[in-house]
Amino acid sequence: MTNKNEGTASRIYLVVNFVILILITILFTWHATRYYSDWNNGLESFMKNMAVSLSYPAWTYDKRVIEQITAVMIEKDEIISVVVYDDKNNKLVVKEKKLNLTTTDLLFGTKRLDRTYNLIYADTYVGKVIFTYIDRSTRTFLVVSGTGAALLYIVSALLILNIKKNKKLAVMVNELNELNAELEMAFNELEETQNKIINAEKMAALGKLMVNIAHDINTPAGIIYSSLTEQQNRIDSIVKKFQSDQLTEEDFKDCLDTISELNQIMLRNAKRIIELVQSLKRTAMNEMTQTWSEST
Rank of each mutant, 00 (worst) to 15 (best):
V72W: 01
T140Y: 09
T70F: 10
I120T: 11
I154V: 15
E78T: 11
A122K: 15
T140W: 01
T70I: 08
R139A: 05
E75N: 13
Y117A: 08
T103N: 13
E96N: 10
T116Y: 03
L92A: 07
S145G: 00
V143Q: 09
V171W: 01
K97E: 03
L152Q: 01
Y153T: 01
D62E: 12
L152M: 13
I80P: 02
V84G: 06
K165Y: 01
T138R: 05
A150D: 04
L99T: 10
R64T: 13
L159F: 15
K98E: 12
D114R: 06
S81G: 14
K97M: 01
K165I: 06
T147P: 03
V94D: 14
S137Y: 06
Y133E: 09
T124H: 10
A122N: 15
L142Y: 14
L142D: 11
N162C: 07
T104L: 14
G146H: 01
V129F: 02
E96F: 01
A71Q: 13
G148K: 04
S81V: 11
T116R: 07
R112W: 00
A71M: 02
F131Y: 14
R115A: 03
K165W: 09
I66E: 09
S137V: 11
I80A: 09
V129S: 05
L107H: 02
V83M: 12
L106V: 04
N90D: 10
T104I: 13
L152Y: 07
Q68P: 01
Q68K: 14
A71C: 04
K111M: 10
I80E: 11
L106R: 14
K168G: 09
I120A: 02
L152H: 00
R136D: 04
L92F: 05
N166F: 02
V129H: 05
N89T: 08
L159A: 15
S137T: 12
K167A: 06
K63Y: 05
